[in-house]
Amino acid sequence: MVAATSTEETLRSFILSFLKSSSTDELNAVFREIASIVLIDGSKRGGPKIGVVNGVWMEQSLSVNSSLKDLFENFFKAPFAQVDFRFKAEEVCKEVNSWASNHTNGLIKNIIPSGSVTSYTDCIYGNALYFKGTWQNKFSDSLTSNKEFHLLNSTSVSVPFMRSFGKQYIRAYDGFKVLKLPFRQGDDTKRQFSMYFYLPDKKDGLADLVKEMASTSGFLDSHIPSQVDEFRIPKFKIEFGFEASRAFSELELDSVSMYHKAWLEIDEDGAKAMTISFLNSKGIYGTSTLS
């Protein structure tokens, strides 16, 4: 949404480069395909439940033409609200946080810190994604038992591990192993969702593995697991958040701040995940009419 609608050329170019796209038209075409195929709710067909919602809050004193509003509401399916940032910034911040909480079933709250929305804010973009899938081969509750789990600080804790004796996808590579857990897809033949787990052989090897994944082109496609009979993984629930504005630091875009939070839980039946992001822009639009 930012690349397609912002008048800030530096920001638009950065987004296109980051997403490896040559133009906003190409980016919009990719978005259209993802929205119409990947992000369609499959729960009525026996597949994963998927929900996506976008939102836009823009300063009411700025001129907005009908084509931009149509782009938000009909193409991105993003409800468009003109709000009073100049005199009611904190109230708008609470409204946005309430929107985030409502669209994540109350699991993600206060994503935008108090004070980060000010009278200089022109626009806020929001995006929330919900996923709930059932394993193709569920784990048996009776096989779940406590085992040792190693932490990054070199200590360990006892946590419940799920165990399977059914055929699953695991493969060992140099320094790490990969597990693939497919989700039930029902009668959906156009797509297949799976969760991948990457486990370093060394107890302190996670940072090096993440670095290798991020720096090696085609890493995921070149490390595909094969079937095995027995394995175990821990049940877990995690939540994390961070201010992603440092991604824009090299551009010296002080007018942009970005916040991201995610929540994930897996158990014997399947996995549930939610993620939400907001981009807060100040002075990107100025006072000119958007086109």
Rank of each mutant, 00 (worst) to 15 (best):
D254P: 01
V96S: 02
Q192C: 10
S6Q: 06
A4Q: 07
S255E: 04
I40G: 03
R86L: 01
P48Y: 04
F72G: 02
S217I: 06
S281R: 07
S6A: 14
P182W: 01
L11V: 10
S140H: 12
D208Q: 14
P160H: 04
L71D: 07
L71T: 13
D174L: 06
P225R: 04
V53Q: 14
W57D: 01
G106N: 12
D229Y: 08
T289E: 06
L68R: 11
L199N: 05
R191S: 14
V30I: 08
G283K: 03
F76S: 06
F193H: 03
T289C: 06
S66A: 14
K88G: 10
L220W: 08
S63H: 13
G175D: 01
V56P: 01
K44C: 06
G126H: 09
T118R: 08
S145F: 08
T189G: 03
K44E: 13
E26M: 09
G286T: 05
L129H: 05
S140R: 12
S257K: 11
F278Q: 01
S22C: 10
K177I: 07
S17C: 02
M1A: 15
L264I: 15
L264M: 15
G166D: 10
F80C: 02
F87I: 07
F80T: 08
A207T: 12
P48I: 15
H223E: 02
S43C: 09
N153I: 07
N54C: 13
T24P: 03
P48L: 14
V38N: 06
W99L: 09
N153R: 11
Q136N: 11
N97D: 09
P113D: 11
I276D: 01
N146H: 12
L206I: 05
K20E: 14
V2A: 12
L129E: 01
D204L: 12
P182M: 04
A89Q: 03
S291A: 15
I15F: 03
S98G: 08
S6H: 03
S61H: 12
D41I: 14
F240V: 10
G166P: 00
G126N: 08
A81T: 05
G46V: 07
P113K: 13
F165D: 14
K237R: 12
E26C: 11
S13W: 00
L253Q: 06
S98Y: 05
I238K: 09
D187R: 12
Y198Q: 03
G286Q: 02
S245G: 10
V96N: 02
T104L: 07
I124E: 06
E9G: 11
L264Y: 13
S114P: 00
P200A: 01
R32P: 00
Q227S: 14
M213D: 03
S67C: 10
S245W: 00
L220H: 05
I170C: 08
L71F: 12
G218L: 04
M1L: 15
I111Y: 03
I170E: 10
L253A: 07
D267R: 05
H103S: 02
R171V: 08
G283H: 04
S119L: 08
